[in-house]
Nucleic acid binder design. Sequence first.
DNA 1: CGGCATCCACACGGATACTG
DNA 2: CAGTATCCGTGTGGATGCCG
Lengths: 137, 137
Amino acid sequence: MPTKSAAQRRAEARVAYDAYLATCPSRQLLERMGDKWTTLVVNALADGPQRYAELARRIAGVSQKMLTQTLRALERDGMVTRMVTAAVPVRVDYALTPVGRDLLPVLAAVKAWSERHIEAVLDAREAYDAAQASRAG
Amino acid sequence: MPTKSAAQRRAEARVAYDAYLATCPSRQLLERMGDKWTTLVVNALADGPQRYAELARRIAGVSQKMLTQTLRALERDGMVTRMVTAAVPVRVDYALTPVGRDLLPVLAAVKAWSERHIEAVLDAREAYDAAQASRAG
DNA sequence: CGGCATCCACACGGATACTG
DNA sequence: CAGTATCCGTGTGGATGCCG
């Protein structure tokens, strides 16, 4: 077998690309921002430190599982601090680190884009769907 | 039944929040950027119009299904144009629209953050994992 | 109060085969 | 070349119940 199959070549390319993506800094942040709750949590914490229950209330749709999971991930990456106050009942406060706070301008950029183009996007979407419908009809 | 159950209240809150998220412009963009391939495709198209096969090659890890799906979504939102040239074989070129091109500064912001903080993130991650390990051991 | 463990449904996304 | 159609494994994430 002197030559590799197309499938083999593709598989190898994918592995190499995965490795590239795994080490790409931008990718790592994108991966975090990608999940549903990260940006919501960071935004909620922008106003200052907050307790677990406060966050749960402000991000009304989140389940405890996802909120905890998101906070843990952010903590692990050094974007959020977790401060436990021993008491009965326990009190846990979360806050952005300087690194985490630096994420706010990025979110601001996203927000700016959205507000500038949302109307065009909505129009485009409508036009696209209309074209699809007429093709189907 | 004068009062609602906790589960009911939570469910209603979730519905309301979902509705809020559905109409929030930032959220809509975040949703797009969230999926694995959107940003890669936009980045690839930053250099100018490109054919389907070129994109598939540059974004080596992507499957046709995902590439097509991503391009369709971007096209629907008016961020990418799709130009078919009737020939044998067919030729299809994709390009960023002005709206899509406006996404590049946002990606640049992400990139800037990543390059500035990746080291701190990696360190934090290592420290966090070490702490976890010592707790388990 | 602030979790963790478990179960489970569903959507995401990869592999493969086929088409205009 | 540029897709579409299908099958199917896996991860994501919600619901629930228990615990320090």
